[in-house]
């Protein structure tokens, strides 16, 4: 049963790839071996076969058969759309892709068929194989969650198509540029046609489906600004305010890691250090600074220092009020 079906699907694909004009269902029944006689059984089998090919990603074209009245649907596969252009991968490059697919997995996506199409798994003992310096081959190091919008957005980026989706209760039309995964989440960057500027979106906050607007993108991608993802207090396009943060010796190593290499550090003789930090979002920065508890102190700007003091005093006042008059 399954061999016959496989044979029939292969024959159908061969015939559809080899024709230059659309073939009607009836012609296909006659040309392709293995179909039942005309009638409901044929119709069911043919519908299932079309579905099977589409699920595989076969670009099955439906066109009107020329000179038919009433019009009759015809089918063909355009070889240009079907054939994978040869990426011309060397053995070691194929092996590197195989290694990547073994060590990093996107939830719900299987790379095996993709590797088959590219020419197999490559030679795993290939010299110059990257990555096994850091991790053992075959040991999965990371699993990345996926999101319903991810594949449609990736496809739109590849094809240079603009998209439409609802975000924060508003419909957005976006020229999609880039997908970023960091801190466990997927983000989309592109040109927001309504806001007329570059915008970032969290994929898990997109409401409903991502659809095509039917138009090609107009605004071309700007290169990503930095390799390392921005910190919460560096987000946004506003001109940054420079803050000075004094950190005690015991917390300097941690502060250095969290603030990043691009931040200026002035070490003091006692081991403490003053970090000069560009900040675009003060609320996120306050959250960060308070994480040091009494082991760090915001020196400048003066109004932010005062805000932290006010913030802390409000906690104290509130507590004293609640203990004086218990509810």
């Amino acid at each position: 049963m399954s061999v016959n079906k496989l044979e029939r699907l292969l024959n159908l694909t061969a015939v559809l790839l080899n024709t230059s004009r659309p073939l009607s269902a009836d012609e296909l029944r006659q040309k392709v071996e293995g179909y039942p006689p005309p009638g409901a059984a044929f119709h069911r089998a043919f519908e299932r076969d079309k579905d099977d090919l589409r699920v595989l990603g076969v670009p099955l074209k439906v066109e009107r058969v020329p000179a038919t009245d009433p019009p009759v649907d015809g089918y063909r596969i355009d070889p240009e759309e079907y054939y994978l252009p040869d990426p011309d991968l060397e053995g070691d490059e194929l092996a590197a892709l195989h290694l990547a697919s073994l060590t990093v997995r996107l939830d719900g996506l299987d790379d095996q068929e993709a590797l088959w199409k590219l020419g197999g798994l490559g030679a795993t003992d290939s010299p110059g194989l990257q990555g096994d310096e850091v991790i053992g081959v075959g040991q999965m190091v990371a699993s990345i969650p996926t999101d319903p919008g991810l594949v449609p957005i990736f496809q739109a980026i590849s094809e240079g198509a603009s998209i439409v989706f609802v975000y924060g209760g508003t419909e957005r039309e976006l020229d999609p540029w880039r997908l970023d995964f960091h801190r466990g989440r997927w983000y989309l960057t592109g040109y927001d046609r309504l806001r007329e500027d570059e915008r970032n979106f969290r994929l898990d906050r997109i409401e409903g489906e991502v659809r095509r607007s039917g138009q090609p993108i107009v605004h071309l991608p700007k290169p990503a600004t930095s390799e390392e993802p921005r910190r919460p207090w560096e987000v946004g396009a506003d001109e940054p305010t420079v803050a000075s943060l004094l950190v005690d010796a015991s917390r300097v190593a941690g502060a250095r890691r969290q603030l990043g290499d691009h931040v200026q550090i002035d070490e003091r003789p006692d081991g403490s250090a003053v970090f000069t930090v560009p900040v675009t979002r003060y609320d996120a920065f306050r959250y960060f600074v308070l994480g040091f508890m009494e082991f760090a102190e915001l020196l400048e700007p003066a109004e932010w220092r005062q805000d932290i003091i006010t913030w802390l005093e409000a906690i104290v006042v509130r507590h004293e009020a609640s203990t004086e008059s218990p509810a």
Binding site: G57, L84, W116
Partner: peptide
């Protein structure tokens, strides 16, 4: 030639 990669692949 093989079939193109699907967007998911």
């Amino acid at each position: 030639r093989p079939l193109r990669l699907t967007p998911a692949q």
